[in-house]
């Protein structure tokens, strides 16, 4: 007979997965996945202590749900993420509307612990789960003339209260050069800390480009288009002087309104000290070659 014993413990007493997964074990496991590239970068292993689940899911820029940092955590539950599909079109061999399951079919989901540097000069370390964008692009077949990849976020005003106000020109758009999109560091993330992606972080599937400012890593993607011309990008359209198409993390090129030389890692509390921002957010060895010969102050 059930109900004879009532435990004084409730589900609230269970240690969250994010805590019982020892962070250092996660790091050890993913170190292999991150590959040899990071080994060359000195002293960055201890730099990669992930932020907590609480921090990652309560301090977000997702203007479709409001411009406050806690608005997405408050409002994003309104977004329907099932069913979900992505329209893949433009210069591809197999255009079409792919369901989330079709996209995930055959993809190898890995854990990638990446630094995330916001253009607003704060940063986090996030243990993403995702697969390389290149794997998806290869599957749909990129045609010879394609030079850029354009992305679009869901645009559903009845579920996204922030869309009522024209903070930006909706839908949110972003783009990458094809070689940036095909780079092994570039992933489509579908989860964090081994859990499905929370809505406020861009469920069910989002881009993560760790060497660029966070706004390039577009959330809740519904469309991917291969193009010949450089596609429009929302922040770049709104303020081209402040937000370049490339928007690579660069401590030497300031935002017109604030310095990009330093950043504040979220989680240090009221007395956290600033730390120096790293070139390409610490991924210089991996990605500097993409921009060889380019004046990064001009193509910021």
């Amino acid at each position: 007979m059930a109900g004879r014993y009532r435990s004084p413990l409730t589900w609230n007493d269970v240690t969250p997965r994010s805590l019982y997964l020892n962070r250092r074990q996660i790091m050890a496991g993913s170190g292999a996945l991150l590959g040899a590239g990071l080994i060359g970068n000195r002293a960055q292993a201890q730099d990669l202590e992930p932020n907590t689940w609480e921090e990652i899911t309560n301090y977000n820029n997702f203007y479709e749900f409001g411009t406050g940092k806690d608005d997405p955590a408050r409002n994003a539950h309104m977004m329907t993420t099932q069913p979900w599909s992505i329209q893949i079109d433009g210069l591809v061999d197999n255009p079409g509307t792919y369901s989330f399951a079709e996209i995930m079919d055959g993809m190898t989901v890995e854990e990638r612990i990446y630094r995330l540097r916001c253009v607003e000069a704060w940063s986090m370390v996030v243990p993403w789960n995702g697969f390389e964008l290149a794997d998806l692009l290869e599957r749909v077949g990129v045609q010879a003339g394609a030079r850029y990849v354009a992305f679009e976020t869901l645009n559903r005003p009845e579920e996204m209260p922030g869309l009522r106000f024209p903070v930006l020109e909706w839908p949110y758009r972003e783009g990458l050069r094809l070689d940036e999109a095909m780079h092994p560091l570039t992933i489509l993330a579908t989860g964090l800390y081994g859990e499905p992606m929370p809505n406020q972080n861009g469920a069910p599937i989002r881009l993560v480009v760790p060497w660029k400012y966070g706004f390039k890593s577009i959330k809740s993607i519904v469309r991917i288009t291969l193009t010949e011309e450089q596609p429009p990008a929302s922040w770049n359209m709104a303020q081209p002087r402040e937000y370049g198409f490339y928007s690579n993390v660069n401590p030497n090129v300031d935002h017109p309104r604030w310095s990009q030389a330093t950043e504040r890692r979220i989680g240090g509390g009221l007395f956290a000290t600033r730390q120096d921002t790293l070139m390409f957010n610490g991924y210089e060895d991996e990605v500097a070659g993409l921009y060889e010969g380019m004046d990064l102050a001009e193509f910021f």
């Binding site: 309560n58 940092k69 509390g269």
Partner: peptide, 18 residues
């Protein structure tokens, strides 16, 4: 407000919040 900021009551980024 300062007390809240110092003790986690202003969210995960208390400097900006304060």
């Amino acid at each position: 407000m300062f007390y809240l900021g110092a003790t986690g009551g202003l969210g995960v980024e208390p400097i900006e919040a304060l």
